[in-house]
Write a protein that binds this DNA or RNA. Sequence first.
DNA 1: CATCGCAACATCTCTAGAGATGTTGTGCGG
DNA 2: CCGCACAACATCTCTAGAGATGTTGCGATG
Lengths: 252, 252
Amino acid sequence: MSGRSRERQAKYQRIAAELRAGIETGEYEPGQRLPGENDLMAAHGVARMTARQALALLQAEGLVEARKGAGVFVRDFKPIRRLGVERLARAQWGSGRSIWAADIGGRDLVVDSVAVTEEEAPAAVAEILGLGEEDRACVRRRRFVLDGEPVLLSVSYLSAELVRGTPIAQPDTGPGGTYARLEELGRRPVRFREEVRSRMPNAEESAHLRMSSGMPVMLIGRTAFDDQGRAVEVNEMVLDASAYVLEYNFEA
Amino acid sequence: MSGRSRERQAKYQRIAAELRAGIETGEYEPGQRLPGENDLMAAHGVARMTARQALALLQAEGLVEARKGAGVFVRDFKPIRRLGVERLARAQWGSGRSIWAADIGGRDLVVDSVAVTEEEAPAAVAEILGLGEEDRACVRRRRFVLDGEPVLLSVSYLSAELVRGTPIAQPDTGPGGTYARLEELGRRPVRFREEVRSRMPNAEESAHLRMSSGMPVMLIGRTAFDDQGRAVEVNEMVLDASAYVLEYNFEA
DNA sequence: CATCGCAACATCTCTAGAGATGTTGTGCGG
DNA sequence: CCGCACAACATCTCTAGAGATGTTGCGATG
């Protein structure tokens, strides 16, 4: 038939619901392969495109992941806990410890690639940093990898004039990182603002994070201020949402 | 043909890219209708299913929204700024002001529906609140609407024993809200933890928030602690990610 | 002038088949 | 015993057509 009696829902939704239930009850465990196009066609007596629609629905929900030529597999979810406040406490970066150390329980989060350039900052960033038309920005682009999987893209902007000739303009910023160096320059960050939002990744982000379709990214925009209230750093981060839980602790 | 020469990308991706470019350059403005299935079939000489795939891609990216029988329209994005820290400052709720007032610039965020029940808390919540097998929880479920659009679902758990007979167990908690009442009970919240993550909505969330496919939700789990470090409230929120930006301010 | 019914048009769902392309394991040859 | 070629199998892409269903605006009717 076609567009048959809508007693409740479409065929592909019924099939998807059945598979979804199987995942939630644990019939199909994370990493396990589940029935593919051909299996569903045979089992439910539907056309290929209909079976595909059912699987596409589950992919869009982020429950499963299709690997071409191999099959459809149940996704896993073991997020990193990222402490928004404590990780930026001075006790952390003041002592030469990586501010990332506190994030992960035993797992291995490392910088995959670093690129430091001097370029013109986007208008919105230039405005925040108080850069004029002529001023340029030091831009630090980094990618972080956990267990071989890229999970975080970070782009950091600072006044080029301020950091020129310091380790901040080098790939390796030394013990304590950028913030320890800023303190040595008399521009210690004392206050932070983080803005969080979420959306679907664009093609570029999708490629850099090797994300499978149907998973959102979280965006964190962090601004660091010194004791004069001047913004000294703007950091834009793109996180694989399936890899992260953000935690913020604060007092009333 | 079929699965033709992959010089670079599939037909449906080329078509999607073209429309995407049109959106980004402003050729198609928010709210405007863009070429539908029939237009794309004619313009590119492809089959209906191929045109549909192109449009499905843009929907999955959250760029457009299809309205059955009407057409495909460009999405808009005007988020609410939610201040994670300041909104819970005592100056806010201590003075009888709604903690929501600071969030929105002139727009109208109101509670759409409130349901207060007494039931058994989920195991994870019971653990945090320190509830035993016998203890029950006061559960406050609310939906918030902005400009007629539902944007936030909130489920709040408190010890039923603690709040029984107080306004907290009523739909209207009075000036200053739940936290002002908790203070009167000698359990003033002094510390908060918020955990943020993001994923695609499930069917129920999708329906309650009237979300169009391809937009993620953000989940906030907030725990409020009193001066003894005891958890007095657990609040699980589901936010339409296209409606919110979360802001957290803190010191090093 | 208001309102209701309907036609035109939009997306949604589905069928049946087929070539392209990526993955995996097996078996043969060195 | 190692390694490579290849067959089997998986998903991906696309065609052409058609009935179902929701939206909208126009025209006829009261």
